[in-house]
Amino acid sequence: MSELKTGDLAPDFNMPTDGGGTVELSALKGKTVVLYFYPKDDTPGCTTEAIDFSTAKADFDSAGAVVIGVSKDTVAKHDKFKAKHDLSVILGSDEDSGVCEAYGVWVLKKMYGREYLGIERATFLIGPDGTLREIWRKVKVKGHVEAVLEAVKTVAA
């Protein structure tokens, strides 16, 4: 499968979310969607990223964007993670990694000389027409949310 690039149609998805809901990309047509993938609930980088996105949620809302964080954690873990850190973004549960694979973020990683499959921290900005407007791979958390918000504003303009 070739890697997604800007201008491509974003792969549709339908997955369970925190709070017993579901989120489906096709149901969000006409809205700007920020889809960010992160490795695991309650780890330092992932927690910082989720808090940063939650802190900026009002700004994303006023720019007409929906923010969805995705990991392979269960809905129950997402609920605990949200409650513990007072998060306000939607958290999608991709336990079978189908969405991660569709977006090309289920990758071979290396840590301490060991190779394993895991989620690459990446963010996809999906325009109201369902096309990928911007893609950030191997995201560094610091300053990332601000960069995404700037890009969202250009889509909304």
Rank of each mutant, 00 (worst) to 15 (best):
S93H: 10
I135Y: 02
T22V: 15
G130H: 02
V33M: 04
F81W: 08
V145G: 03
D61F: 11
T22L: 00
A63H: 10
F124E: 02
K84D: 13
V34K: 02
I135A: 08
H85F: 13
G19Q: 15
K153E: 10
C100Q: 15
G7D: 07
G69E: 10
K80A: 15
T22E: 15
L25H: 07
Y116S: 14
L28S: 07
D129K: 01
V145F: 00
D86P: 00
D41M: 01
D42S: 13
Y116N: 08
E134R: 15
A157T: 14
L132E: 11
K138Y: 02
T47Y: 03
G118D: 08
M1P: 12
A157V: 09
T55S: 11
G69R: 09
K80S: 12
K153S: 06
G20M: 07
K142V: 11
T6M: 01
W136H: 09
A83N: 13
S54D: 12
V155T: 13
K29Q: 13
K109I: 04
K31Y: 06
L91S: 08
G98E: 14
R121H: 06
V152H: 05
V107E: 12
S2H: 09
V34L: 09
T6Y: 01
V67I: 13
F81G: 03
K29M: 12
L28K: 09
Y103W: 06
A156M: 06
A56I: 00
T74E: 14
C100G: 11
V152Q: 07
P16I: 02
A27Y: 02
V139H: 03
G98I: 08
D61H: 12
S62G: 05
Y103G: 09
S88A: 13
I51V: 15
T48H: 04
V67Q: 13
V99K: 04
S26V: 04
V141A: 06
G98V: 11
V67F: 13
L25A: 04
G69S: 09
K82C: 02
D12E: 11
I51D: 02
G127I: 00
T6A: 13
V107G: 01
E150H: 00
A65G: 03
A27F: 01
D73V: 07
E134K: 15
